[in-house]
């Protein structure tokens, strides 16, 4: 009898360990997903930190079309549009585009722009030296602003990609401005800039 119960409880403990392990694995999927996407760039997220632009060789022989589209999340009342909708660039060349925002409300709103590149692989080759999406953007009621974004396309961009789209979605983060999520955010950590 004692043996039977010992055998049972040993097995139960092992199985419970599996259960707890898998519960942990469910949460471990979150950083795993982020790391996986960072490395492969398959979900179109770009780095949230400035890339450096030093002695990059411009590939004049190649032309890449970059398209910009903008969205505001549900409940985000700002006007938000790209001043340049489409730009043809040579890989390695530094470009600046401007985005127009206006806060039609009477109170201050803090916005956060989240980029998404399609096709996703292009995200790894879009290097921003300056972007309004790196920081939260407060805007007083009724104000308008022009937000710059400076970027270059890495000359290593795969041959089959000659057209990609950058989408910015603007979120209202006024309610959560106190806990600035970006710096500790594993999701938006800097990738190794491939064009040094």
């Amino acid at each position: 009898m004692a043996t039977a119960q010992n055998n049972n409880s040993k097995l139960v403990i092992k199985l419970l360990a599996v259960v707890i392990g898998m519960f942990g694995f469910g949460f471990a999927l979150v950083p795993l997903y982020d790391v996986f996407c960072d490395i492969t760039g398959i979900n179109g997220k770009t780095s949230n930190q400035a890339a450096s632009y030093q002695s990059i060789e411009v590939d004049e022989s190649r032309e890449v079309t970059v398209e910009f589209i903008t969205r505001t999340n549900t409940g985000m009342p700002w006007e938000f549009r790209a001043q340049t909708h489409r730009v043809k660039v040579h890989p390695g060349e530094l470009n600046t585009v401007e985005f127009y925002v206006r806060n039609p409300l009477t109170k201050e709103v803090v916005a956060q722009a989240i980029p998404s590149v399609s096709p996703g692989q292009a995200a790894l080759f879009l290097n921003k030296t300056e972007c309004f999406c790196f920081n939260q953007q407060p805007l007083a009621g009724g104000d308008e602003a022009s937000l710059p974004m400076q970027f270059y396309v890495d000359p290593q961009l795969p041959e089959d990609i000659n057209y990609f789209t950058v989408q910015y979605t603007l979120y209202d983060v006024t309610a959560r401005t106190n806990d600035l999520p970006q710096k500790e955010n594993p999701f938006l950590t800097q990738q190794e800039s491939s064009g040094k």
Partner: peptide
């Protein structure tokens, strides 16, 4: 025993995203 705990994790993340301000699935928070 391999996947029910993962479901429990998923509903827990939904719970904290909805009621406790986490951002597992909210792009605005990363």
């Amino acid at each position: 025993i391999a996947v029910m705990p993962v479901l429990a994790g998923a509903v827990t993340m939904v719970l904290t995203d909805k009621f406790f301000g986490t951002s597992f699935f909210d792009a605005a928070g990363g």
